[in-house]
Amino acid sequence: MLRVLRFIAVPLMLLALALGVLALTSQPAQTSAVLSTLGDQPLVIAHRGGKGLWPENSLFAFERASDLGVDMLEMDLHLSSDGELVVIHDRTLNRTTNGQGRVAEHSLTQLQALDAAYNWTADGGQSYPYRGQGIRIPTFTEVLQRFPDAAKVIEMKVPDVGMEAALCEALQSHQQIDRVVIGSFYDRSLQLFREQCPGVATSAGPGSVRMLVALNWVGLGSLLSPSYQALQIPEAHDGLLIASPSLFKTASERGLNIQMWTINEQADMRRLLDKGAHALITDYPDRALQVLGRPTQINALARE
C-alpha cells in the first residue's frame, strides 16, 4: 500500500507544481488596439455586412451598415484562382450569385462579372430587389480602400492556400493592422497568421475555445494565457451550452472580448448582454442598435 501511495503521490506533486507555475505565470490577453478604440460599450457587429438586410459581403452592405452606425463590419475571405483575396462566404458561388462552381476555380475577372446580389431575397423568394444593380463580389483591397477607418472582423475561410500571408500583406500595405480582428475555424491558419503578422488582434480558434471551456469546467480557467483577444462563440453547440455565466466570468477575467454569433432575435440579444456579452454579431444590426437604445436611421443613403 505504501508503495502505491508513493507511486500516486509523485505525479500528483508534479501536477500540483505545474499548476502552481501556471498560476504564477499566466497572463490575461494582450490589449487589442482595435477593441480599445471602440470603448466599453456593447458592440454591434454587422455579420457579412448585415445579410438579413442587404446582399451579404458586398460593398453595398458594408456601406449601408457603416451609415447605420455599426461598430464593426464582419466579412469572409477566399482566394481566387489568380491569388486575389475576395470577400465571399461560401466555397462555391451557387447560393449567392448567378454563377456556379468553386470560388477558387475562378479568376478575379470571372468572379467580378457575376451578380453577387442575384439570389438575395427578404420575402422567401417572392422578389429579388437587388438583382441587376451592379452589386458584385468585392476584393479585400476594395474594402480596405473604401472603409479605411472601419473596424473589421475578418474570417479566413480556407487553410493551406497562402491566405495568411496575403492577408497580412494587405493589412500592412493599407496600414490597417490596428483596425481588425482576424478569425478562422482552422487553428493552424490562426497560428500561422499570428506568426506572420504579430500584434494583429485575433479571435480564438475551435481548439482554443474547447480548451477554455474545458479549463473553465474544472475550475482552472484562471491558468489560461490567451494568445487571442476575442472570444467569438455561439450560445450553444450540438446541444451543449457554451455561453455559461461561469465562462463569461472567466473570459472577462482573462481580458477577452466576448462576441456572440449569430444573434438575430432581440430577446436573445438582451439576455446575452445582460449575461455579460461584449458584442453581438448579427444579420440584423438595426435590431441590435435598437436594443442598445442607439439610432437606427441610416445617415447617408449613398456614398460618393
Rank of each mutant, 00 (worst) to 15 (best):
K51M: 11
P55R: 04
D187K: 02
A122I: 02
S58R: 04
F60T: 02
Y130A: 01
S225W: 09
A33I: 10
D40C: 00
G162L: 10
L77N: 02
E142H: 08
K157F: 05
Q30E: 14
G52I: 06
R294E: 03
Q259S: 12
D160F: 06
A204T: 07
S173P: 06
E195P: 00
A23H: 14
G49I: 03
G207E: 13
Y228I: 05
D286I: 02
R270S: 12
I233N: 10
S252G: 14
L114T: 03
L292A: 05
A151R: 11
R136Q: 11
D123G: 03
H78D: 00
E74G: 05
G205P: 10
D67N: 15
P42Y: 01
G276Y: 04
K51R: 15
I154L: 10
L85M: 12
L35T: 08
D90L: 04
P129Q: 07
E253P: 00
V143E: 04
L24E: 09
P42D: 05
A151Y: 11
L19K: 09
R179E: 13
T296A: 05
G132I: 08
F62S: 03
A201E: 06
V161H: 05
Q232F: 05
V21H: 09
S203W: 09
Q110D: 11
P295K: 02
Q126D: 12
V158H: 07
Q145L: 13
K157C: 08
L171A: 11
Q196A: 06
D160T: 08
T141P: 00
V291I: 07
S246T: 14
Q133P: 02
R3I: 15
T97W: 01
K249P: 00
V4I: 15
G239S: 03
N264G: 04
L167N: 09
P245K: 03
Q290H: 11
T97Q: 02
G132L: 10
L53N: 07
G293Y: 10
K275A: 15
I135S: 07
A104P: 00
T92R: 09
M260V: 15
L111V: 00
L167V: 13
I242E: 09
G39M: 07
V153C: 07
P42V: 05
I281G: 02
V180T: 06
Q126N: 12
T296Y: 04
K157H: 04
F140H: 07
T282F: 05
S26P: 12
A302Q: 15
D238E: 15
R271M: 09
P148G: 08
G101R: 04
Q133Y: 06
L280K: 01
G50A: 05
